[in-house]
Design a protein around this nucleic acid. Structure first.
Length: 689
DNA sequence: GGTATAATAAACAGAA
DNA sequence: TTTCTGTTTATTATAC
């Protein structure tokens, strides 16, 4: 029961804001395990402090610049970056965020450059706000209003981009262990990245601009808000504001006519609460605009009310009590164009952050996968990836992951699946195939076998991950069943015990019970390598290693194509040929130091590189578990009734040579702690792969 | 396009 | 009768 609730918790990681704190918790836990990866900043100014200091300095400079402008420097030509303390090309500072993603920006720019860019953008934002203000009050021609609307659009786009960029930068710092991780939500992330006061200030600027425009409009037309009026060529900035924000979301400037309230409401409601989280749409989506009957308002708390002030973006109105706040909310933030526009901006912010979160979650899993590997195994990740030859999943991931970054052994579902999925995270649900009942399509099914993933090694490295994350393990049912059975003390399990192993080891299998249990039974019956043995306490299942080795493994003959495929398999954080080579290399070193190996055995180890990884791991596991040289564990030794099955498609292949490996391995000391067997018992033997 | 492999679904039967 | 266990068949997807 506890495990199920735990998996439920994990599953929410990318679906709402709560996931952020969950993710942070995981990060904290992971950081603790890794021990010391966060660095030691005690007694000195931490990088994050420096970052904040720089941001404050930039903002301070921007404020001074604003003051100068307000005191008479109204010339637009003065709005140049030469005021900026850091020299980053203006074209870069202004255009890049809209042209390329923040991730790409970070790859292109060094951290100092990135920081400089952030500062420039912040200063520029404030400058734009000032100019917008200035033009709003000084100019009244429609053309100027049009310009204001465009500036607002540009401003808000850049604001979001800047927020993204800063958040990404913070995450990068966190990833580098330079910043301690804190439970946060998207808005907190923005505030954390920007400096809360300045973010709020920027929001106020947006609101202020719109308020000023509304005032102007009312002055010119002598009428109040008329939401039903279509915008014309002489439309007021308010209409532009609307369309700008609308196009902000659509990614195009289509200058749509004003929507009436119903359409605004419809548009907002089109965002499912599942995507955006309850709190974002609650005021609108439940019973109309900011209804005072909202349940949270009656409950004495409101997400938009805290510390005696209104938390509406850009609004810091002081409200003594909830009643006053509700009154303020209904009066000042009713469903009108401005509120809708602000809501849209907020939606956009949330959506961007959620996308970012999904990506970062996947990146986290890739990092965890990487960090679980020993320091002596960096080779695979130094090799160029050839993802183009991989399947569609890898192609998708190649779009997500920067080149050279190890991909998680996927899954997301992301929700992670987000992957959703691995470790396959992809637990990010966003990466899960929606057409598949399990959320994980067949694409992923054979990943383990295709890339020859060593199940023992993978499980050892990501044991905790699979136990907690709702991520489908990248192994076939057969390999999982076999692993479960071989892991058992007497190398035999009842069906129910196999079920229990699945649910114990993988959060993913704590759901979809009917499906995967059926699959387990199906595999047990189908594959000849699984032998049913009846004893006094009922039927148990064992593994016939000979039969298992007969299963046609992925061909790894060393041809360029296969090697390329293996390299492409790198994307899963699973072991590939290079990794195996590194493992063998390090193992040989170890064995040589123990005088247990000779050149011929080294050749044998190298030969293993051409084997399917499952085969390799099975060999090692078997030897390891048996503790003897016997290459197989014949079920006949049980002396019970045995049901021999026929493998559907059996191609006889030479059994891989394993005697030498067995000879070597049996001499190696094995940890005795069974509780840690996943991590300790298998690793030494896996190193021989 | 054929083949192999794996996942999934489902039907069915026998035992507990 | 229900549930569990085990077998079998069919379909689909993917990789080669």
């Amino acid at each position: 029961m506890m495990v199920e609730s735990a998996s439920e918790t994990i599953r929410t990681t990318t679906s709402n804001q709560n996931g952020v704190s969950n993710l942070s918790s995981q990060l904290d836990g992971g950081g603790g395990r890794e021990g010391g990866s966060n660095g030691d900043n005690n007694g000195e100014i931490s990088p994050v402090d420096l970052l904040h200091l720089q941001q404050q300095q930039a903002l301070q400079a921007a404020r001074q610049f604003l003051l100068q402008q307000a005191s008479g420097l109204n010339s637009p030509s003065s709005n140049e970056v030469k005021q900026s303390p850091v020299q980053v090309p203006m074209s870069m500072a202004m255009l890049t965020p809209q042209m390329i993603s923040p991730q790409q920006m970070q790859q292109i720019l060094s951290p100092p450059q990135l920081q400089a860019l952030l500062q420039q953008q912040q200063a520029l934002m404030l400058q734009q706000v000032t100019h917008t203000h200035t033009h709003s009050f000084l100019g009244s021609a429609p053309a100027q209003h049009q310009q204001i609307g465009n500036k607002q659009l540009a401003f808000q786009q850049q604001l979001i981009q800047m927020q993204q960029l800063q958040q990404q930068h913070m995450i990068n710092l966190q990833r580098q262990g330079l910043v301690s991780l804190q439970p946060t939500n998207p808005m907190q992330s923005l505030q954390q990245a920007m400096c809360p006061g300045d973010l709020q200030q920027l929001w106020k600027e947006v609101s202020g601009v719109q308020s000023a425009e509304e005032a102007l409009k009312q002055q010119h037309t002598g009428e109040g808000l008329d939401l039903s009026t279509n915008s014309t060529s002489t439309s007021f900035p308010k209409a532009n504001t609307h369309s700008s924000l609308h196009s902000l979301h659509n990614g195009q400037d289509n200058h749509t006519p004003k929507r009436d309230r119903a359409r605004l409401f419809e548009w907002i409601s089109s965002f499912s609460k599942a995507d955006l989280g309850d709190e974002h749409l609650t005021p609108y989506s439940k019973g109309g605009p900011l209804s005072s009957s909202h349940h949270e308002e009656h409950a004495g708390s409101h997400p938009l009310y805290g510390h005696g002030e209104c938390k509406w973006p850009g609004c810091e109105a002081l409200c003594d009590d909830m009643g006053q706040f509700i009154k303020h909310l209904n009066n000042e933030h009713a469903l009108d164009d401005r509120s809708t526009a602000q809501c849209r901006v907020q939606m956009q912010v949330v959506q961007q952050l959620e996308i970012q979160l999904a990506k970062e979650s996947e990146r986290l899993q890739a990092m965890m996968t990487h960090l679980h590997m020993r320091p002596s195994e960096p080779k695979p990740f130094n090799q160029p990836l050839n993802l183009a030859s991989s399947g569609s999943l890898l192609k998708r991931e190649s779009e997500v992951y920067p080149e050279g970054l190890p991909h998680p052994p996927t899954s997301a579902t992301a929700p992670i699946t987000p992957l959703r999925q691995g470790p396959s995270v992809i637990s990010s649900s966003s990466l899960h195939s929606h057409s598949h009942p399990h959320g994980v399509g067949p694409i992923r099914r054979r990943i383990a076998d295709k890339f020859c993933t060593p199940i023992a090694s993978e499980l050892a490295q990501n044991c905790e991950f699979y136990k907690n994350a709702d991520v489908r393990p990248p192994f076939t049912y057969a390999s999982l069943i076999r692993h479960a059975i071989l892991e058992a003390p007497d190398r035999q399990l009842t069906l129910n015990e196999i079920y229990n192993w699945f649910t114990r080891m993988f959060a993913y299998f704590r759901r979809n019970t009917a499906t995967w249990k059926n699959a387990v039974r199906h595999n047990l019956s189908l594959h000849k390598c699984f032998v049913r043995v009846e004893n006094v306490k009922g039927a148990v299942w064992t593994v016939d290693e000979v039969e298992y080795q007969k299963r046609r493994p992925p061909k790894m003959t060393g041809s360029p194509t296969l090697v390329k495929n293996m390299i492409s398999g790198l994307g899963f954080g699973s072991l590939n040929a290079s990794y195996q080579a590194a493992l063998a290399e390090s193992s040989l070193t170890l064995l040589n130091s123990q005088g247990l190996v000779n050149p011929s055995s080294a050749a044998s180890l190298n030969m293993l590189h051409g084997m399917g990884h499952d085969d390799v791991s099975s060999t090692v596991e078997q030897v390891n578990s048996n503790g003897s040289c016997s290459p197989t564990l014949s079920p006949q030794q049980y002396g019970h009734q045995v049901h021999v099955k026929e493998e559907p498609t059996e191609i006889e292949e030479d059994s891989r040579s394993m005697s030498l490996m067995a000879t070597v391995t049996q001499n190696m000391a094995l940890p005795s702690d069974r509780d840690d067997r996943d991590l300790d018992d298998e690793l030494p033997t896996e190193e021989l792969e």
